[in-house]
Design a protein around this nucleic acid. Sequence first.
DNA 1: TTTATATATGAAAAAAATTTCATATAATAA
DNA 2: TTATTATATGAAATTTTTTTCATATATAAA
Lengths: 107, 107
Amino acid sequence: MTDATDLFFNVFRNKNRFRILKLLSNKELCASELQKELMIEQTNLSHDLKCLINCQFITVRKNGRKRIYKISPETKELVEEVSKHIKKYELYLKKCNIIKEEENEEI
Amino acid sequence: MTDATDLFFNVFRNKNRFRILKLLSNKELCASELQKELMIEQTNLSHDLKCLINCQFITVRKNGRKRIYKISPETKELVEEVSKHIKKYELYLKKCNIIKEEENEEI
DNA sequence: TTTATATATGAAAAAAATTTCATATAATAA
DNA sequence: TTATTATATGAAATTTTTTTCATATATAAA
């Protein structure tokens, strides 16, 4: 069951994890900086960071009592490609939502 | 909460839905043909197809008692790009799995 | 028309993922 | 040392997704 496709989506499917990866694409950040940006619970963020580390999508290094997170070059490239596509098909994707909303109105 | 990123992942995150899109990238297929290829439950497939139709990632047309599914050109391009990336980083993604397995062994 | 084939649907059950909570650890400052 | 800051962890609770089940519908063949 765990082929490359699964592994890819296991990590990327999560909105917060994807947002973390996008932030780390710009520069290295520590957990508290990520927390401030993403407005998510500390403990929650910590779980997501662990997930990303397990998958080697990001790496950590200690600096005082902070931990600095860094995205891997391969993952950075991947995030940029996916972001590009989401942006490119934004209108198209938003249309999907309109259809869903119309469906809900019918009920 | 429903921005383009969410919408994108809502559809693409599912393994079966992604496999459907990959099959439809090659040629139009009816549900029973998809079922044979994917080896998934009829009712299950039907639910996934509905999801993809709702999002306009695929379209349907009737032909006798069969329904022929067709991927949209934009989605086809998107699937190809993501597939290309998954293939490119296959080894890298598989490493993630090894790490997870090692973690499990420690327990 | 009855039967068979192809597909859809909705609700319940099951599984998986995410969030919350309570607490732990590690490093530095006081 | 003790307190504080920064982050991690595991388990329980919650939420979301997927699967299953029972049944419906639509078309064509017999």
